[in-house]
Simulated scan of single mutants.
Amino acid sequence: MGISVNGVSKNYKAVKALQDISFQVKPNELFGLIGPDGAGKTTLFRILTTLLKPSTGTASVAGLDVVNHFKDIRNQVGYMPGKFSLYQDLTIAENLAFFATIFGTTIEENYDLIKDIYVQIEPFKNRPAGKLSGGMKQKLALCCALIHKPKVLFLDEPTTGVDPVSRTEFWVMLKRLQKKNITILVSTPYMDEAAMCDRIALIQDGKILQINTPEALVAQYPKTIFNISANNMYLLIKSLQAYPYQHSVYPFGEFVHYSDTRDTFSIEALKTYLENNQLSHIYIEETQATIEDSFMALAR
């Protein structure tokens, strides 16, 4: 069973955290909510996991209304909040047993669901959760969220602050869980993780900018993107922003991503312009658009 959100808004006095949000998550879909900090992702997760009531609009999870059937929903979903929220002084084994007991089940009953994850932390099962690494805390939290075999899994920025290897491992685990008939809604500020989702919703300032597959979002980008670097990144950005034909300019790793307003673009003309602005070691090459480029274009 999936998720349905229809015209949901959430206000905190004068602050509009969510503004008329609507989308559907199909059964067994891995759906990503992509956006920066403060975009409204956590507020939406709290509404869908029945921790907050929407100011307006309706939402359902696994066919159940989040307001009228909140108790039933809590038994059918797994929730992994952005901040590690397990008991720091309990061991791995004790945390897992505690959450199994709360949901009226046992570790053995649903062990097949968590086995692939749990075997990675089992050697440390007697270690207090507070003394685990970021990646191990992440795996323990996921095990606790799955121990009652939920129909829908909510993961709010699960890889924030985790090392790159653990991040990659985590998404491999999510793909495996998806094959076990679990609907997954995951939020992340990392654009590279968005490509792992079946579909994504780009969100900013409490509004959905667009919903589509990662491939379709990238394909819709209307301009050619160029990677540009030089000896002085700050001066490079300021010079490109002052260029009369610039369409967009923003940092992208070790490069600046640049697009031009003209259909015909001369790399040599731009290079000469930058050299006249006291820049050297200039590198300009066409590159592929990314989800981040699409997000920046929509946000602009």
Rank of each mutant, 00 (worst) to 15 (best):
S4V: 13
V15F: 15
Q19F: 10
D20G: 05
Q24G: 01
V25K: 07
L30F: 12
G32R: 00
L33K: 04
I34D: 00
K41M: 11
T43I: 04
T43W: 07
F45W: 04
L48T: 05
L51F: 08
L51N: 04
L52M: 10
G57Y: 06
T58H: 06
A59F: 01
S60T: 14
A62G: 08
L64P: 04
V66L: 10
V66Q: 06
V67D: 00
V67Y: 02
K71A: 13
D72W: 02
I73P: 01
R74V: 03
N75F: 11
G78K: 07
S85I: 11
L86W: 01
I92C: 08
A93C: 06
A97M: 10
F103P: 00
G104I: 05
G104M: 06
T105A: 01
N110F: 07
Y111E: 14
Q120T: 13
N126A: 06
G130R: 03
G130Q: 04
K131H: 13
G134I: 07
A141V: 08
A145S: 15
P158Y: 06
D163A: 02
S166K: 00
R167H: 02
W171H: 12
V172Q: 15
K180Q: 15
K180V: 05
N181V: 02
V186D: 06
T188G: 09
T188Y: 12
Y190R: 05
D192K: 10
D192I: 09
D192P: 03
M196P: 00
Q204V: 13
D205V: 07
K207D: 02
I211N: 09
N212R: 02
E215F: 06
A216E: 15
A216I: 08
L217T: 04
N231M: 01
N231T: 10
N232F: 00
M233H: 12
Y234L: 15
I237D: 01
Q241C: 06
Y243R: 02
Y243F: 11
Y245D: 15
Y245L: 13
H247M: 07
Y250C: 03
P251Y: 04
H257I: 11
Y258N: 03
S259E: 14
R262Y: 00
F265E: 08
I267M: 12
E268Y: 11
K271E: 14
T272K: 14
L274M: 03
E275L: 12
N277A: 10
N277E: 12
Q278E: 13
S280C: 03
I282F: 05
I282A: 09
E286N: 08
A289F: 00
I291M: 13
M296C: 05
M296N: 08
